[in-house]
């Protein structure tokens, strides 16, 4: 692992995207390694152990979702998937297979850089001292003591609200799919009660957000899930 420069592995077969990502990311002081196929990508990931993987879902040899699964067999390094226009089911499949985040092509560079920064920050944090305290703005969530405070004042939550918030905050920065939230909080295995999720997300936002109609912490990922950011 290199010292100062974080290494990014880009797995994408389109040359123009490779070229653009290499130039842009190198300017941002990242070390960029490019793989044109899924198999090369997997081999390179094992060999160089990058800090982050950017993975295109439409690869010529193996499906991106499968690459994701095989990466997750041995590593928890952050994976950001790139998918084409509005293909929600692919994104959801990749996220359920262990990807941390997604971007829809075409995307802006600022968006990509923001995602990379978030992923790197949370990953390094998670690797370090396993802190049970999550802070986001004026919110702090003490996962060990089941305590949520806002501006130092205790926020009173119901059991389900707390469970939902703890799951979101415990995966800070990651996109969690509807299904994975339903599994985790309610234990529904198949196509559970989306209406419960909607109702509790609204309640949580009312309790922790400054402006629940323009949320800062619990973000909606349309058709995919929710994400907690700091």
């Amino acid at each position: 692992m290199s010292g100062a420069k974080p290494q990014i592995l880009v797995i994408d077969d389109e040359q123009q995207i490779q070229r653009a990502l290499r130039t842009i990311l190198m300017q941002q002081n990242y070390h960029v390694i490019i793989a044109g196929t899924g198999e090369t990508g997997l081999a390179l990931a094992t060999a160089i152990q990058p800090e982050i993987v950017i993975l295109d879902l439409g690869l010529p040899d193996i499906p991106g979702v499968e690459v994701c699964q095989r990466l997750r067999e041995w590593t928890d390094l952050p994976v950001i998937v790139l998918s084409v226009h509005e293909n929600e089911s692919d994104k959801v499949a990749a996220l359920d297979a262990g990807a941390d985040d997604y971007l829809t092509k075409p995307f802006g560079v600022d968006e990509l850089l923001a995602r990379i920064r978030v992923a790197l920050r949370h990953h390094s944090k998670a690797k370090g001292s396993k802190s049970s305290l999550v802070t986001a703005g004026n919110i702090s969530i003490d996962l060990a003591n089941h305590l949520v405070t806002r501006n130092g004042e205790i926020v009173r939550l119901t059991a389900t609200e707390y469970k939902l918030l703890a799951y979101l905050a415990g995966n800070i920065g990651r996109v969690l799919t509807h299904q994975s939230i339903l599994n985790h909080v309610w234990g529904y295995s198949e196509g559970g009660q989306m209406e419960y999720l909607r109702v509790y997300i609204r309640q949580l936002r009312q309790k922790i957000e400054e402006n629940p109609r323009s949320p800062q912490y619990i973000l909606t990922e349309s058709g995919v899930g929710y994400r907690f950011i700091s």
Partner: peptide, 17 residues
């Protein structure tokens, strides 16, 4: 359409953003 129960307020807020 992948229909699911949704809050229209949430949909509109996302669009505004």
């Amino acid at each position: 359409p992948q229909r699911q129960w949704n809050s229209f307020a949430e949909i509109v807020d996302t669009c505004i953003k």
